[in-house]
Design a protein around this nucleic acid. Structure first.
Lengths: 145, 145
DNA sequence: AGCTTGTTTCGACGTCTGTCAATGTCTTCT
DNA sequence: AGAAGACATTGACAGACGTCGAAACAAGCT
């Protein structure tokens, strides 16, 4: 058996790689649909003091990324080819597999990831609108001072 | 007694307002100095999977902003004129004064704020290098997919 | 049908976190 | 010196959180 890369049994990896190009749909960058956490949440942090509601919303996203394991998982998904990854490809973060699942669920609840089951595997994708929203949040206004 | 805005005794508020315009210095937007938590911590989230160390570092910052009260405090400081504010000007976030102090300490420990005592009051400033570092973190690479 | 593999859910445990009242420290004013 | 105001620290407590093993669920394979 040619052991390719670690603790997984042979066979499933190529399948994962093979399935990779099945979604060429462009992600809805600014589609404000039903999802609550996503979308146009808040102004830049430096523009004006946040209201209680804005802070509640934005803090949810920051909190989701405030755990090292979650951050690694999120980064792994975000940097994966096609912008998606199956759990088996990213669960090498030093914690048990149920814990990985728990964190992925948290990221999903925070609106940062979406999941889809295709056959045996579950694929996670980043929600790009949220990413850009958070980027805007941290935009330092050029000529504020 | 003219109850102005809640649970604070009268008198100190207007004094704070008066002190407010005493600093017109422009903030060093990209001064990379000695501070440990700040500076070049991590690549963009979408570039490659974070290592354990990178995740640990970046998660600390996200975690610090992962609380609504802290986020309001940080936003209040960041959006204040001159980029700094005394505690008395931003402590109207619905929690007790010790709790405000506790959160400001957390933000300071995370490297997001610095504090300086001037006379009776303590002024908090944002650490701009950290802000821009977090902004870069959330940069979505243009042509990744 | 049974077995195997990938993933989620459940239940429990210890730790961390946000909150407050009470107290302490530092500074200014009288 | 004494009093008062601004802010920090301490101690305590309830709730949230991260973690795991065990069990459940889902899909493919023999």
């Amino acid at each position: 058996m040619e052991e390719v890369h670690g603790r997984h049994s042979s066979g499933w990896f190529d399948v994962c790689q093979h399935r990779r190009m099945s979604n060429t749909r462009s992600l809805p960058l600014l589609a404000p649909e039903s999802d609550a956490a996503a979308g146009p949440c808040c102004p830049p942090l430096t523009e004006r003091p946040f209201t209680a509601e804005e802070a509640e919303t934005a803090a949810r996203m920051f909190k989701a990324l405030g755990d090292p394991v979650r951050l690694r998982l999120f980064s792994a998904v975000a940097s994966h080819e096609g912008g998606e990854a199956c759990v088996c490809d990213i669960s090498d973060v030093g914690v048990s597999q149920p814990t990985v699942s728990h964190h992925l669920k948290k990221l999903k609840e925070a609106g940062l990831l979406t999941s889809e089951r295709r056959g045996t595997w579950v694929y996670y994708r980043v929600e790009p609108s949220v990413l850009s929203a958070m980027g805007k949040l941290l935009t330092v206004a050029p000529a504020v001072l």
